[in-house]
Amino acid sequence: MVIKPLNYSFFRQPTLSLARALLGKLLVKETELGTVSGWIVETEAYIGPEDRAAHGFENRRTKRTEVMFGPPGYVYTYVMHTHCLINVVSGEIGCPEAVLIRALEPCGGIDLMYQRRGNGKKERELTNGPGKLTKYLSIVKEDYGRALFEYPLFIAEGKEMGSIAVGPRIGIHNSGEAVHYPWRFWVQDNRFVSK
Rank of each mutant, 00 (worst) to 15 (best):
M1W: 08
K4F: 14
K4W: 13
L6T: 05
L6H: 05
N7H: 02
N7T: 07
S9R: 12
S9M: 10
F11S: 07
T15C: 14
L18I: 12
A19K: 02
A19E: 09
A19R: 04
A21W: 01
A21V: 04
G24C: 08
K29Y: 03
E30Q: 15
E30M: 10
E32L: 15
L33P: 02
G34R: 07
V36R: 04
W39T: 04
W39G: 01
W39E: 04
I40F: 14
E42N: 15
T43R: 05
A45F: 15
A45S: 14
G48R: 00
G48W: 06
G48M: 07
P49R: 00
E50Y: 02
A53V: 04
A53N: 01
A54I: 10
A54Y: 01
H55S: 13
E58T: 04
E58R: 09
N59D: 13
R64G: 08
R64P: 10
E66M: 10
M68T: 04
F69N: 11
F69W: 12
G70P: 01
G73R: 09
Y74L: 06
Y76L: 14
Y76V: 14
Y78Q: 12
V79I: 14
H81V: 13
T82W: 15
T82E: 14
H83I: 06
L85C: 14
I86V: 15
V89T: 11
G91F: 10
G91C: 07
E92I: 12
E92K: 06
C95L: 12
C95F: 07
A98G: 01
A98V: 02
A98N: 01
A98I: 01
L100S: 08
L100W: 07
I101M: 13
R102G: 01
R102W: 06
L104E: 01
C107D: 09
G108F: 11
G109K: 03
G109Y: 08
I110M: 13
D111I: 06
L112G: 03
M113F: 05
Q115H: 11
Q115V: 11
Q115T: 11
Q115D: 12
G120P: 06
K122A: 15
K122Q: 15
E123Y: 10
E123T: 04
R124A: 03
N128F: 00
G129M: 14
P130G: 15
G131Q: 09
G131T: 04
K132S: 10
K135Y: 05
Y136F: 11
L137F: 08
L137A: 07
S138Y: 00
I139Y: 04
I139S: 08
V140N: 02
K141H: 10
D143C: 05
D143E: 10
A147E: 07
A147I: 04
L148R: 00
E150V: 10
E150F: 11
E150S: 12
Y151C: 09
P152L: 11
P152W: 13
E160R: 12
M161D: 02
M161G: 06
G162Q: 01
G162L: 01
S163C: 07
I164H: 03
I164F: 04
V166N: 07
G167L: 00
P168E: 12
I170W: 10
I170G: 02
G171K: 13
I172A: 09
N174F: 03
E177Q: 12
A178W: 12
V179E: 03
V179H: 02
V179A: 03
H180F: 15
H180P: 09
Y181R: 12
F185M: 00
Q188Y: 00
Q188F: 10
N190E: 05
S194G: 14
